[in-house]
Design a protein around this nucleic acid. Structure first.
Lengths: 250, 250
DNA sequence: CCGAAGTCAAGAGCAGTGCTCTCTTTTGAT
DNA sequence: ATCAAAAGAGAGCACTGCTCTTGACTTCGG
């Protein structure tokens, strides 16, 4: 369920019993932390409560986890990993040449994971936990998997010649923005033209906007009887925004 | 700065000195609460700290505010009101017939307020505060002002015959969703066809998605040198999604 | 094989939190 | 001036993150 890195450098010398027990305990702490996160939310995540569930006194867990923030970081990485895995799996299940289907799969996977794990989703994409700063060097990697996957889908569609700006034209890019987008293009070696990179970024944030509204109940209760249908419709429109070919019907 | 309702029923019998002092104290508490919210975040909002700033012992503030959650509710309503006021003012400043300009003004106003008051924005549109449930009867009114304003802009454009589905077609609406949207149409007496109501909802959540990504720093630091340009570009694309006429250039 | 080094759990304690209860003081209306 | 209502003060409960010390246990080198 939850993997923990075994040695800092990644060399796999046989582990001493001590190390094994230690990594196991840390894994247990993360597992219990996830449960508390799911049931009580991020701000209510308490090391003492985890310690109680672990059958241990509170100060003992500090041997394994430096601080509450450190536990939050572990949970953050864990959640990013799980989301990334599910998105990758869903995307891989769609035919490689059907870029619209891949996009749809990505969007649905994000939504379904978010609805299943609202607290984790809130930790990743909701308001930042006050006083907590995620260590960029450990979280940017796992944290960018979804956008990287999305851009990869769009880039593949672009290479296949299936991506097109809408007929009625796209607003022009101001120079500074064009330069930023060109840098992104270059960094990832993208075929995607700048305008479509910009639209990809928009689609990305829009996707999370739609998911957030649903997860955070911001539509109000009972406004939409079939939220999945609404979301699918949004995805279809967003596919068009990204330049993907839209089918007239579902 | 912060207005407090004076009497429950709204009749303005002359206030007794007691009542005056009381509403003034509540207003002070909300003001100090806003400061703490802005500087330390919602989860760190502490009645004791507010009491200290007020020069009073902690139990005394319970005479005015029922609980910490009650204070959160007051701050929620306060923030919704401020956002609504700023959005309305910005929209009103654009010519009534230029619906695209009104939309742009709305989007920019939301973004600017959010960047100026990130903690309040997080309170309204970020992860829900765990264990806190906003009382719907007091918050839905102020909380729906922005979407109502957005829909009003789109509806006015529709009535003026300036709103059109994109040339390349819109995905079809499944029956359940169409029924929900028809109900919204009826409730607000909208001219807007169902497809464009759906797109309006999408644009609405997309707008907040884009703002959230920027406020919550989810693009990563220093990815975009001119975030306002990126956001304006997004707004231009979203205007097109909503069916508003897009100008080829800015 | 035994002692040193390393590891770990426990407990006490500090400063903070929300909230309740009781007691005293203030204050406004009669 | 009197008196009840309102407001403030203070103690206290149960909780939090975190630190420090103490004692016990495990591992490893000589």
């Amino acid at each position: 369920m939850t993997e923990v890195q075994e040695t800092a450098a990644g060399l796999d010398r046989p582990l001493t019993p001590r190390q094994r027990a230690r990594t196991q305990t840390i894994a247990d702490i993360v597992r219990l932390g996830r449960q508390h996160l799911a049931t009580h939310g991020a701000a209510a995540l308490s090391l003492r409560a985890v310690a109680r569930d672990l059958g241990v006194v509170s100060s003992a867990v500090y041997r394994y986890v430096e601080s509450r923030d450190e536990l939050l970081t572990l949970l953050l990485i864990d959640a990013f990993g799980e989301l990334g895995d599910e998105v990758d799996a869903a995307v891989a299940q769609a035919p490689e040449v059907d870029h619209s289907a891949r996009f749809l799969a990505l969007g649905r996977a994000v939504r379904e994971w978010a609805l299943r794990e609202p607290a984790s989703y809130a930790l990743l994409f909701g308001s930042p936990v006050p006083g907590y700063n995620a260590p960029a060097e450990r979280t940017t990697g796992p944290g960018t998997r979804v956008i990287v996957s999305l851009i990869a889908i769009l880039d593949a569609a672009s290479r296949a010649g299936q991506l097109s700006l809408p007929a009625d034209g796209s607003p022009q890019l101001p120079p500074t923005l064009a330069a930023d987008l060109a840098a992104i293009r270059a960094e990832y070696g993208l075929d995607l033209p700048e305008e479509l990179v910009a639209r990809g970024v928009l689609v990305w944030s829009s996707l999370f906007g739609a998911v957030s509204f649903e997860v955070f109940n911001q539509y109000g209760p009972n406004t939409f009887k079939a939220p999945a249908e609404l979301f699918d419709h949004h995805l279809a429109v967003l596919a068009g925004v990204a330049g993907l070919p839209v089918r007239a019907s579902r």
